[in-house]
Design a protein around this nucleic acid. Structure first.
Length: 192
DNA sequence: CATGGGATTGACT
DNA sequence: GTCAATCCCATGC
């Protein structure tokens, strides 16, 4: 991504990440769903302040924050905003583009729509794990790159975030409108 | 040091 | 629809 892309308000970054491409482990996909988290609201891990767990979130922008969810899944975030502010965008779903045979092997599934349609699914499909926490998202093994030409004009729909119990009303979920590869349907369908 | 709670998924009723 | 799996870590005694 261009310099400074992640060092902006996390809501702007989340909106702009829809349509961008995530590549790792010989596989890639277009981001069709993501969510913003910020230390000012209680659904964000960084809400509790600087701890060993949240250190990555408060660190420099443009790094990966990868953590274990429910003891089982690794979830991938892109750290945003200037260092010292705890904010990140959770990558929640991809439209598979390349390395699809390897994704199927890693997931043990055939159906294209089920390979990356959830935050834990896409990390499994791409082979992303906790060891990637803190890695650079431009020069590291995980790379996020600009929207391909065909995604330049993507329509982004807003919705409330999935799976949280605090600050549930904030419409900080960003989806590619009409995509078949979302983790769940959009309810608000408010466009940005 | 013990406890409790998840930014989920897949299997099962 | 319901529910268990499973681990990291924040919190509180």
């Amino acid at each position: 991504m261009r310099p400074g892309f992640y060092e902006r308000p996390v809501l702007e970054v989340a909106r702009d990440l829809v349509g961008c491409v995530v590549t790792h482990g010989g596989c890639s996909g277009v981001i069709v769903e993501c969510e913003a988290y910020h230390d000012s609201e209680p659904a964000c891990h960084a809400f509790v302040g600087l701890t060993p767990r949240t250190a990555t979130l408060f660190g420099p922008p443009g790094r990966a924050y990868v953590y274990r969810s429910y003891g089982i899944h690794a979830l991938l975030n892109a750290v945003c905003e200037p260092e010292g502010i705890g904010a990140a965008v959770l990558i929640r779903a991809l439209e598979p583009v390349s390395g699809i045979a390897q994704m199927r092997a890693r997931r043990g599934l055939e159906r294209l729509e089920e390979l990356c349609s959830g935050p834990g699914k896409l990390t499994q499909a791409l082979g992303i794990g906790l060891e990637h926490n803190g890695s650079d998202l431009s020069g590291g093994s995980i790379v996020i790159s600009e929207r391909p030409a065909s995604w330049r004009e993507v329509q982004v729909a807003l919705d409330v975030r999935v799976g949280i119990t605090k600050a549930v009303e904030l419409p900080w979920r960003f989806c590619a409108a009409g995509s078949r590869f979302l983790s769940r349907r959009v309810r608000l369908a408010k466009a940005v």
